[in-house]
């Protein structure tokens, strides 16, 4: 079996007495979609924060793409190909959708200590940004300030920005949160199309999306992984049914 693209080794983090991450070990294999599910407050967002580098774990190690990145700052991890999307949309509201994506492409191309050329007239950059937007059905919204997009469009833009960075591993924190059925279906299709292009760690509450996409699922409860397995194994795991899924959710 190929070496995992991401491997968490005994990760722990506490806020005071509250253990938000408790001895978490999991891995993501190249090309795999590994879903992490769990009730609200289980520590999913905190876990993504530690993997992406916006939060520091108390102990444990994070290996990404063959090296230890535990001490690497967030922007350096992003450069290495470890990208994340945010549960609470984190876009640049005054920039247009195109400018949001173009900035991500620009970041990919190394330093931005370039003062002379007008970036908004960089036809090549704009064309590539528009191509990313088109993948998510946002091509008609390229010139709209991102702050005025609909919620669903913002979620899609969030994904377009991450994809523009050509990730090796994409951490997705509830990409479907708050979107309507139709938008959820479209995002599922987008992610399915991306499957295999890069690995993903998917945190999601929408169970139909999770079971449609995931190769493996880990269940997080009170900061602890209580089960990891294929969707079938997780569906049939009595502990998981009891702790989280509920009978009707998988019926």
């Amino acid at each position: 079996m190929a070496e995992p693209i991401l491997a968490l080794d005994d990760l722990c983090k506490a806020y005071g007495a509250l253990k938000v991450t408790s001895h978490v070990s999991l891995d993501v294999r190249p090309g795999e979609i590994h879903a992490v599910i769990g009730p609200n407050g289980a520590g999913k967002t905190t876990l993504i924060g530690q993997i992406s580098g916006s939060l520091a774990p108390d102990s444990g190690r994070i290996r990404f793409d063959g090296r230890d990145v535990t001490a690497l700052p967030m922007h350096a991890r992003a450069h290495a190909g470890l990208l994340r999307s945010f549960q609470i949309t984190e876009i640049l509201p005054a920039f247009t959708a195109r400018e949001n994506v173009a900035l991500a492409l620009q970041a990919r191309e190394g330093h931005s200590f370039r003062f002379w050329r007008n970036v908004s007239r960089d036809a090549d950059l704009n064309a590539r940004a528009d191509a990313c937007l088109a993948e998510l059905g946002l091509e008609a919204r390229a010139e709209v300030p991102a702050g005025t997009l609909s919620h669903g469009e913002k979620r899609a833009l969030e994904l377009a920005i991450a994809m523009a960075c050509e990730p090796k591993l994409l951490l997705l924190d509830e990409p479907m949160a708050g979107t309507g059925r139709e938008e959820t279906d479209r995002l599922v299709e987008v992610l399915r199309a991306l499957k295999g292009r890069y690995a993903m760690l998917l945190v999601e509450h929408d169970m139909s999306a999770v079971f449609a996409l995931a190769d493996r699922i880990s269940v997080l409860v009170y900061g602890e992984i209580v089960a990891t397995g294929t969707p079938e194994e997780i569906r049939d795991n009595p502990r998981v049914r009891e702790a989280y899924l509920g009978e009707e959710a998988v019926a």
């Binding site: 992003a78 984190e90 640049l92 005054a94 990919r108 200590f113």
Partner: peptide, 25 residues
Amino acid sequence: VASRFGRVLQGAKQSEMRLRAIGID
């Protein structure tokens, strides 16, 4: 302001976290 540099500057004003997330300090 209109350059790549300027875009980073204005992006950082709006969300520092967003910039770090795409690889810019």
